[in-house]
């Protein structure tokens, strides 16, 4: 029964990774950019929630509400002011730009908030500790179920947005061929900025769940980036639902590894990532741009 529980816990853990990964997948799907600052952006979101909680005594799940529009603006401005220029200079420059941004965010957070380790779990109420006991050995934590539910809702919402709305259609067209998109009247730069804004806002939600479930500090971003990146690659680069599948596969691999030996948790995830990376198919879902 321990193995079944490991799988259940892995699926729930996959929700966290999918949350972190879906913004990364969106940016890659639309712009072919791997945002190396994605984990740091998530941690920035967590700190902004912390700032809100310093002023208002509310649940972190409410405190994220004013943070989201701020993150949307940060993402939009970052794309228009910085990434847009670097995109014109080939594939390596955006990578270096986001790497630089990652260092800037980490040091700004260090300067402002000190290196202290924080958590928002204490302010999140009973949802952090509540669980449903299914059998004597299998339990489902409320926060795990909530995280997975939010991840599915966000991915589903993003999928609906891309498939059913004119703005989503523009985004898919631009992802497939930005030059032709311009020729049919689409402002590809504005589309890119919207995609980054959405990705940054979703990263903040990932940061919130990280802060509630666990601890964070100014340098927690790169670890989250690694797991997010692994989930994206396992799922299939640029595929949204693949991101969820990738997150779950990564989570299950880690919990099964942990079941074998607690030291094998992260290692098992990395091994699955390497196997997928080396496979000719290259991900559970094949690359289909942001439309997947």
């Amino acid at each position: 029964m321990g193995w079944v529980n490991a799988v259940v816990q892995g699926v729930l853990l996959g929700g966290v990774y999918a949350l972190f990964a879906c913004g990364l997948a969106l940016m890659f799907g639309v712009m072919r950019i791997i945002n190396l600052a994605h984990g740091d952006v998530a941690v920035l979101g967590a700190y902004l929630v912390l700032v809100v909680l310093d002023h208002w005594n509310v649940s972190p799940f409410l405190a994220i509400v004013p943070v989201l529009p701020v993150m949307l603006i940060i993402g939009y401005v970052f794309q228009r002011a910085v990434l847009e220029r670097s995109l014109r200079s080939g594939v390596l420059v955006p990578l270096l730009t986001t790497f630089g941004l990652s260092i800037v965010i980490q040091n700004l957070l260090l300067e402002k908030f000190s290196p202290d380790v924080r958590s928002l779990g204490g302010q999140a109420g009973s949802v952090v500790t509540a669980s449903w006991q299914i059998t004597s050995q299998i339990s489902i934590s409320a926060i795990g179920a909530l995280t997975l539910g939010v991840a599915v809702a966000i991915l589903g919402g993003l999928q609906l947005f891309l498939a059913k709305t004119p703005a989503g259609r523009r985004m898919r067209a631009t992802a497939q061929d930005p030059d032709t998109a311009e020729l049919v009247g689409i402002d590809s730069r504005a589309v890119y900025a919207r995609a980054t804004a959405i990705a940054v806002a979703i990263a903040a939600i990932g940061g919130l769940f990280l802060a509630v479930r666990s601890t964070f500090d100014p340098f927690a971003g790169p670890t989250q980036l690694i797991f997010a990146f692994e989930a994206v690659v396992i799922g299939g680069l640029g595929s949204l639902w693949g991101t969820l599948a990738g997150g779950i596969v990564l989570g299950v691999a880690q919990t099964i590894g942990e079941q074998i030996n607690p030291e094998y948790s992260a290692l098992a995830g990395h091994l699955v990532f390497l196997v997928v990376l080396a496979s000719p198919r290259g991900g559970i879902f094949r690359l289909r741009g942001a439309s997947a």
């Binding site: 004119p166 259609r169 067209a173 497939q176 032709t180 998109a181 009247g185 689409i186």
Partner: peptide, 18 residues
């Protein structure tokens, strides 16, 4: 230079954005 993953109608609608 059509958008290959978009349907015929979606290709037309994309052209109708502006």
């Amino acid at each position: 230079r059509l958008f290959p993953a978009l349907t015929v109608e979606e290709n037309l609608l994309v052209g109708a954005q502006r």
